[in-house]
Design a protein around this nucleic acid. Structure first.
Lengths: 199, 199, 199, 199
DNA sequence: GAGTAACCGAGACGGTACGTCATGTCTTAAT
DNA sequence: ATTAAGACATGACGTACCGTCTCGGTTACTC
């Protein structure tokens, strides 16, 4: 049960927070391209080695910075007591609205930049963040299948990818992040298709 | 018709090609993060100022490099003589297959990195590349609406975004690009929804 | 006797003047270090090749620019009708005064920079400019020797070098060019020595 | 007495030496014009920022490089136990001989180039180097005045300037540095003048 | 008066160096 | 052992000039 007590001075957990905060505000101000470990360390009132001791790379740091700011609570919008279609409607509205907020949009773009910049070590990072959303949506869809609402031969992963990917695509191509909120009736079309297709 | 001849020695068009080629192979080898104007110039057998004279930034250069390598001919898969649903099926297959090729995947990721890294000057860049695809798909859908195949109150932009965004999302989250090809039956679901929803 | 007439359009002599003027004002403004062929050409309203067609290097251009602005008339202060000592007194006063003028000081420093920067091709350049002064002084001293005013075993070149070199040394070491004018009684001491030494 | 220990990793004094050595050999090989911070850093096995951290400009670096190689011990030739005239004779011989050595000549020319290139920030630099020589000579002359050997109304600074300036002038105008050694009988003339003039 | 050769401006070109910035590692003294 | 500070080698950044070249266009001699 006892953790192995490392010898010497223990790490100050407060530094973690300071670094992550500095990372987020730098991300908001300058975007991913304008980020630098140097500026983050200075802004956090911390030495560079302290940053490197905790995160091995810029991508990992950005990953953690984004992780504890957003997306972690989004699946909560899925209320398991309602019918799947209603659950998804509520969730997609909440998800798109959150993504359209400039502050969150910057985080998602940063994550995208980190992932696309160096696919090798960063792709899993992006996936780690979307997985929570993705799996929640698939679970909900699966419930719909089991209740007979949706066809059983539908590729639920593909549907979830379409919903999340659509928002991402809008963020990348629209200058005005407000547009992202208007998801149109995409979900309605998908739900109709899930009930009807193949017939 | 005669363009006004700019004074001074005209630019050598061959350099453009050499630089774009060097950019593409560097992108394939090292990804967007490993790119450097310095190495591109050297690989192209060209001085750095020659690069900067033509492209103001790495993002702009990557944009053009990707533009003239791929995606320009993809909309050709839409054959206007067939019914819209068939057209879309053929196109989506072709699009996903092309995007899954490692070479093209690298280009799309590079574009995504450029656009997400510095939204300000680069977002239009990404949009410029997807616009051709996007508009072709929307046109095809619109034809379906006019022929009575699809419901008239569907948000066609949302559907197109779902198709393209889904592929993009897969590229970012899947380590194995081959997975992208399997678009599942997303298009079938959407088509069914387009015919049925609201009824 | 006839110069070989070069065929084709003859050079426009007006450009020479424009280039030399531009060189001099650039020299006054920025010093030798701030000089660039590029800026000179632009300031003179002339293309770079026009400059290179006439002067092979920055040093050569600076040489000519200094030459036709100053120093060419300084030996005139030596009036051959007066006794050598008086001649030299008048000349040294004129020389030091001219050298102390900020405009002339800048030219001399430029010449010194050109000569010291690349001894190989530029040393003769400096020598070409001081030769007129140097020889005039030596001639004057020689007249004093022949008239019996000065000892015949004096090294006249050494005396001339001391006079000119002293001014140069002051220019290099004194921030305040006005100081250069005060040559003290160096010439008096030298003249006394020329009459007396060895006795 | 204890200096306040600056925080952080202290500078490695060995780098200073390596950089100064590299500067001197580059100066000998290519002259001041051929100097580049880039090559110096490479030759010293040092990064460019390490050079710029210690010297703000090429001129300052050259100044220090010359300073600790030469001229610092030259005044030693003045032996205070001998009569001033003998002291000066010995010193001038040593000084001219040292200046004529190709290695030292290159250093003096580099210093001259640095000082004349950008008078603003570099003139004091040259002065700093010649001051030791200059003051030693003036002190020696003053001793001669006090002992009654030299006239009391002589401008001693002017005499020192003539001696040092004469050598400098020769270095700039003579291609053959060996010539510099032959200072002629300039010092004899000056000494005679210092004893006799005005009488 | 038609060639034509050298001139002219502008500016592209391959280079080289500039001086700055960020990277990730290290060394130090202090906690 | 961790901390902040900061030196360090490396290497890319974007800019400025270098000296050469290639353009379209202009002169002014020569045939």
């Amino acid at each position: 049960m006892d953790e192995v007590r490392r010898r010497g001075r223990p790490r100050d957990a407060g530094r973690d927070k300071a670094i992550l905060d500095a990372t987020r505000s730098a991300l908001l101000r300058d975007g991913y391209a304008g980020l630098s470990m140097e500026k983050i360390a200075t802004a956090a009132g911390v030495g560079k080695p302290t940053v490197y001791r905790r995160w091995p790379s810029k991508a990992a740091l950005v990953g953690d910075a984004v992780l504890d700011s957003f997306l972690s609570d989004a699946p909560d919008a899925l209320n398991p007591d309602r019918p799947p279609a209603e659950q998804l409607t509520g969730w997609y509205q909440a998800y798109a609205t959150a993504a359209a907020e400039p502050c969150n949009a910057a985080m998602i773009l940063a994550l995208t930049a980190a992932a696309s910049e160096s696919p090798r070590d960063a792709r899993s990072l992006y996936e780690q963040h979307s997985r929570a959303q993705h799996e929640a949506v698939v679970d909900c869809l699966r419930a719909g299948v089991q209740s007979g609402d949706f066809r059983s031969d539908a590729d639920l992963n593909a549907v979830a990818s379409a919903l999340i990917g659509s928002v991402l695509y809008q963020l990348l191509t629209q200058t005005d992040t407000a547009v992202v909120v208007r998801t149109g009736n995409l979900l309605d079309i998908l739900l109709a298709g899930l009930r009807a297709f193949g017939r």
